[in-house]
Nucleic acid binder design. Structure first.
Length: 866
RNA sequence: GCGAAAGUGGCGGAAUUGGCAGACGCACCAGACUUAGGAUCUGGCGGGGAAACCCAUGGGGGUUCGAGUCCCCCCUUUCGCACCA
């Protein structure tokens, strides 16, 4: 076929790549087979659990979802093709505040709104061709699921891991509910209302004792080599373990007219540098420290100043520039005794001390701490040097620049401890403090217990009752689930909407049979997502959250894929939940997720897509214009998946063009190859049955074969390694370009037909994980009967991928001067001989002395001359 | 302030181990075809220069036969953490 015949009067109708027609056809077929993507319950195959983070059913998928699921779907399909029993489920994180907002705005019940959204998004996912096992779909807002949230809550309560306490909580006025610490942004605003400062309120709340697992959550990060370093670091920082000591400073009551108040006579400080304690020249208390209240009780002037500090701290916290505010404080006029040397040091209140870290009190050592140094300078407090740097020459030990904060030092001015290294001193001083009963080793954490009470309607009811006689009483397991009532008036003020539903609130105490009031708070939705991936393995179990034996088969999750924004919240709660379930005997592993992948954001014009910027790209529109395959392939092609992706409409057009090229090539060559191979006149080119170098193998055919196997390697390697699907898709494009470049040779019959069929088969197989619609269409066109979903992945043959000739760049003194083509098996001597015969090299080397010849086999030759 | 990642053509990006910088795609330019299409095919495309060549991976040094890649200093961007005692 000549070029003009091929493209002459435009493409005939069947040569046009009509994504909509193809995708509609396969969509229909796939819908008619609900078992298509089902995981096998009993299988001798190796299992593979690939999971994408379940979405919140907001109403429509966005491009971030498409990207996330395209990665997971490609992996699932690749894994199927490699013979695994694959679990690839999907579900809905469907409780949460937006449903209530929608209810208020549209007067639609949250359930109806949510289920409607789920239906819409599920249809979008199906249209995009994602291969989910829908028989395992999990919808967290349905009683079949949240029943088990309640069941777990009872188990936590039985084990003392759920408890109720009055505490200062983060209150978002916009959400009209409490937030977990993890849901408060660094700027002190709500994670969902980035402009709304979170307030502090005192409320009775339910907490989960995640801090029981602080150490294990930290330690087991070492068991997660398959997690991004970044996420591991974020979790480590979030847990914030800090090793040090608690030391008690007694208030000095030898001062006239002072007793002590309800907070006692002892100020307990936390320090990581007990070795510097002889340098402590003041005690600094957080403004909200209980002892401050006592000290200010009969001192209105101090009270006023302290209140000012509190207000200032709060304001800074709300503005988000805590850390930026200037350090200042106020002397209380009182003194405390350093238990090591009985020295009286002044007690201050300072705005840089936080009540919610450590003990809310520190010993201030200006010479060896940056902040204490600044503070002491400002208020002219004594700065006493107690640590010297260790130098080579002991004689000339110089005074360091202050503050000297490093721990590689030696103590001076520290009584019996002088002369010890810091490390030694820390050990010894803690021992002495323990012996003396005024201190001990201690570890503090930044991680706090997880407050899960939410004063909202659309969530899992907490299965607890309050009886006038028996107090707090758990709902008996047999009475679960506590059903969330459906006709509830929803407002965003006045506490939980459930409190206004008498049928819900009024209950009977299971202990005494008397009247009881039901808990009207619901659970944080992060409870739902902490264990949902276990439910997928046994989604219809109505006797237990899941069967442990089934979980045993599928867990851990082999690959979890989602956004890095869940690095702390969801991923730390999930780890906690797994450990708690392990301690219950429900599961036997320590960590739920073997490998984690965090994909980058999809942005447009350099900014995150958002309504206000008007730069939203709608998946529906992309699918309608270019097809699902193009949308998916582009989302993988435009950038490596771990980086942000800058969406460009012209880019997806290029992808559509590429799919068209593939389509047209197969349309032109499928039938030819099929018919001819039916007669088996020509040997297949590849495989061991066809010896290389036989006459039938034109150089064009060999070139195609070489490129094919190089492509198989590149694509396969990427699935095993870096997941740089952008480069493996470009590799497939290169293969297609080679096929186009060979069309004249094909037309002349220089490419054996059986091989032509095989190349097309492999091309389709390579494309199948990324563009399933087109791949299925072409697979059928090639006359393949086997199911493409589980057809074996093409095998890479290194022999067939080998180049016969190599182009060797020639450098003179490291500068590229020329290139020569040599047989691939050339010896170094031959390459050098040929290189020296090359004209440009001869000129460059003339009248010069060759100092050195560096040959990198198959790569390059560098001749060093003088 | 601390920690991490990144910085390469007009654009997205490639170069996985120190070995031809710019693969693949977009945009653009030219040509072909013409049932005139926002289709398809072919070719060109970092900068300078007629050419030989020279310059070029945020900037400056260094190591090396050879550096986008390794080392040191600096700049910028993004992300995370942040009075954490």
């Amino acid at each position: 076929m000549s070029q003009s015949e091929r493209s002459g009067n435009g493409h005939s109708r069947e040569e046009r790549y009509d994504a909509q027609r193809i995708e509609a056809k396969w969509f229909q077929r796939w819908q008619s087979d609900p078992q298509l993507y089902a995981a096998e319950p009993h299988s001798g195959k190796k299992k593979y659990y690939v999971l994408e983070m379940l979405p919140y059913p907001s109403g429509a998928l966005h491009m971030g979802h498409v990207r996330n699921y395209s990665i997971g779907d490609a992996l699932a399909r690749y894994t199927w093709m490699n013979g695994y029993n694959v679990l690839h489920p999907m579900g809905w994180d469907s409780f949460g505040l937006p449903a209530e907002n929608a209810a208020i705005q549209n007067n639609t019940p949250p359930k109806q709104w949510t289920l409607g959204n789920i239906a819409k998004m599920k249809a979008q996912m199906k249209r995009l061709g994602f291969a989910y096992d829908w028989s395992r779909e999990v919808t967290t807002c349905l009683p079949e699921y949240y029943c088990w949230n309640q069941w777990f809550f009872l188990k936590l309560y039985e084990r003392g891991l759920a408890y109720r306490k009055k505490s200062k909580v983060n209150w978002c006025p916009s959400c009209a509910t409490v937030l977990a610490n993890e849901q408060v942004l660094a700027n002190g605003c709500c994670w969902r209302h980035e402009e709304t400062p979170v307030e502090q309120r005192e409320l009775e709340q339910w907490f989960l004792r995640i801090t029981n697992y602080s150490d294990e959550l930290l330690r087991d990060l070492a068991k997660l080599p398959g997690w991004p370093e970044k996420v591991v670091t974020m979790q480590r920082n979030w847990i914030g373990r800090s090793e040090g000591a608690l030391v008690d400073f007694k208030l000095d009551y030898t001062q006239p007219h002072h007793g002590f108040g309800p907070a006692g006579a002892t100020i307990r400080v936390f320090t990581t540098r007990i070795d510097t304690i002889y340098g402590a020249t003041s005690i600094q208390l957080a403004p909200e420290h209980p002892i401050v209240n006592d000290l200010a009780a009969d001192n209105p002037d101090l009270r006023r100043k302290v209140d000012h500090l509190i207000a200032e701290q709060r304001k800074a916290k709300e503005k988000g520039d805590i850390g930026e505010i200037e350090k200042h404080g106020v002397a209380t006029g009182r003194y405390a005794i350093n238990p090591f040397n009985q020295e009286r040091i002044p007690v201050w209140v300072a705005n840089y001390i936080l009540m919610d870290y450590g003990t809310g009190a520190i010993m201030s050592v200006p010479a060896h701490d940056d902040r204490d140094f600044d503070f002491a300078k400002k208020y002219k407090l004594e700065i006493r040097l107690v640590i010297l740097p260790i130098t080579e020459d002991d004689e000339t030990m110089a005074e360091p620049a202050l503050p000297f904060t490093t721990i590689d030092g030696m103590l001076i001015n520290s009584g019996p401890f002088s002369g010890l290294s810091c490390e030694e001193a820390i050990k010894k001083m803690i021992e002495d403090a323990e012996k003396g009963g005024f201190g001990k080793a201690a570890v503090t954490y930044r991680l706090k217990d997880w407050g899960i009470s939410r004063q909202r309607y659309w969530g899992t009811p907490i299965p607890m009752l309050y009886c006038e006689k028996d107090g707090i009483v758990a709902v008996p397991e047999k009475d679960l689930p506590v059903i969330l009532p459906e006709s509830v008036e929803i407002t965003l003020s006045g506490g939980s909407p459930l409190a206004r539903v008498p049928e819900f609130v009024n209950a009977t105490c299971p202990k005494c049979g008397g009247p009881a009031r039901r808990e009207t708070d619901t659970m944080d939705t992060f409870v739902d997502s902490s264990w949902y991936f276990y439910r997928y393995t046994d989604a219809h179990n109505d006797r237990a959250p899941f069967d442990s034996k089934i979980v045993q088969y599928w867990f851990p999750i082999d690959q979890y894929i989602g956004g890095v924004e869940h690095a702390i919240l969801h991923l730390i709660y999930s780890r906690f939940w797994t450990k708690f379930m392990r301690d219950m005997g429900l599961v036997s592993h320590d960590e739920p997720v073997e490998r984690l992948f965090t994909q980058g954001m999809v942005i447009k014009d350099g900014a995150k897509m958002s309504k206000s910027l008007g730069n939203i790209v709608s998946p529906d529109e992309m699918v309608a214009r270019y097809g699902a395959d193009a949308a998916r392939l582009y989302s993988l092609f435009a950038a490596p998946p771990d980086r942000d992706l800058d969406w460009q409409d012209s880019g997806i057009e290029g992808i559509q063009r590429f799919l068209g090229r593939v389509y047209r090539f197969v349309v032109r060559n499928a039938a030819v190859a099929r018919v001819e191979t039916g007669t088996a006149r020509e040997p297949a080119l590849s495989g061991r049955s066809a010896p290389k170098g036989t006459a039938e193998q034109s150089s064009a055919a060999r070139a195609i074969q070489r490129k094919l196997h190089q492509t198989i390697k590149r694509v396969s390697d990427d699935f095993q390694g870096r997941w740089h699907f952008n480069t493996c898709i470009s590799a497939i494009m290169e293969l297609v370009n080679v096929l186009y470049g060979s069309e004249d040779a094909i037309a002349q019959g220089a490419v054996p037909k059986a091989f032509l069929l095989e190349v097309q088969r492999d091309l389709v197989l390579l494309l199948a994980p990324f563009a399933p619609y087109l791949a299925h269409e072409l697979w059928e066109m090639l006359g393949q009967k086997e199911a493409l979903l589980k057809a074996p992945w093409p095998k890479f043959d290194a022999e067939l991928a080998k180049e016969e000739e190599l182009e060797i760049p020639l450098q003179i003194n490291g500068k590229l001067r020329s290139k020569i083509v040599v047989p691939a098996d050339s010896t170094e001597a031959l390459v050098i001989e040929r290189a020296l015969a090359e004209e440009k090299v001869r000129a460059a080397v003339a009248r010069k002395q060759i100092v050195k010849k560096i040959y990198v086999p198959g790569k390059l030759l560098n001749i060093v001359v003088k």
